Amino acid sequence: MQRLKLAVVSAGLSRPSSTRLLADRLTEATGERLAQAGRPVDVHAIELRDLATDIANHMVTGFPSAPLREALDAVAGADGVIAVTPVFTASYSGLFKSFFDVLDNTALTGTPVLIAATGGTARHSLALEHALRPLFAYLRAVVVPTAVFAASEDWGAGDAQTEGLPVRVARAGEELAGLMAGRPAAAAAPEEEGVVPFEEQLAALRPR
């Protein structure tokens, strides 16, 4: 059976990062559910912190660097996506938004996406519904019902008998795994011979 592809986008700015920690827990929960369903998965983790300069350059030049192109291709070719951002001023971070701004706006059509966010207080949790969910709805992704927010007090709290962070992570991972398991694995895009990429065509038009 062909292996599924899971792209995990984390927009944390610090190291260590609670945003990356939440992304890792969601990845683990999703992977466990897929393993139980007999669907092997390959995970491609994308740290936007490492691509910040590349994203900014791409926005003003239209030319992605090789690492950024690899990240964009990983998201576009994934069978499922986990997208996690810190919340700044009641919304997603600028770095997070900029990455999805440079992604082709048809790349996530029909792709299952699990959205999650971190913040210092639970008051920021509404950003999942008023900012992240509309963003991925616009990109025509299939957003799983359970969105996961982790405030500072959530870490280490809760157990299997309560509605703590571990329960929400497990539920969201199960929902994403269910959607991914019901999809045929994404096939690698065939390379077109003799086709000059649009970026190269633009470069050829520039005065030397």
Rank of each mutant, 00 (worst) to 15 (best):
V148D: 02
A56F: 02
G156I: 04
A78L: 07
L139T: 14
P207L: 07
N105D: 15
P64E: 15
Y138S: 14
H58S: 13
V43K: 01
H44A: 11
A71M: 00
P112A: 06
T30S: 00
K97H: 12
V75F: 07
L132C: 04
P16W: 11
A23F: 13
T106E: 15
D42H: 01
E199A: 09
H44L: 10
G94I: 12
L176I: 10
G31R: 10
F88N: 09
L72Y: 00
V169P: 08
A117P: 05
R49Q: 10
T53M: 11
V102Y: 01
A141W: 15
E174S: 04
N105S: 15
P16Q: 12
A157K: 05
S14T: 15
Q201W: 15
A147M: 08
R171Q: 02
G62Y: 13
P40Y: 00
T106M: 13
V60T: 14
L176K: 09
Q161I: 00
E193R: 03
A189R: 14
Q36H: 06
K5M: 11
V167I: 04
R39F: 02
G80F: 06
L95I: 11
A107C: 14
D54Y: 11
P166Y: 07
S10C: 12
P67G: 08
R206D: 02
D73F: 06
P40M: 00
P197I: 02
L21G: 13
L26G: 06
L108E: 12
V81Q: 03
L51P: 04
A23R: 13
P166N: 09
H58F: 14
E32G: 10
N105T: 15
F100S: 12
E32W: 11
P207Y: 06
M59T: 05
E28M: 06
E200M: 12
T121Y: 02
F88P: 05
A122R: 07
A29Q: 02
I46Y: 01
P86K: 12
L72Q: 02
S152C: 01
P166L: 08
A147I: 11
G31H: 07
P190Q: 08
A172E: 00
V60W: 12
E193M: 01
P145A: 03
E174T: 05
I82P: 02
A157F: 01
F99H: 09
L135S: 15
Q161S: 03
G77I: 00
P134A: 05
L22K: 05
L68H: 10
R183C: 11
A117W: 09
R3K: 10
V8Q: 08
G38M: 10
A90K: 04
D159T: 01
A170G: 00
R25S: 10
A131M: 00
P40T: 02
H130P: 03
R140H: 14
G31Q: 12
F63L: 13
P16R: 04
L72G: 03
Q36I: 08
F99I: 13
V87T: 05
L176F: 11
A90V: 03
T85F: 13
E175P: 01
P112K: 09
R20G: 10
A56G: 03
V84K: 05
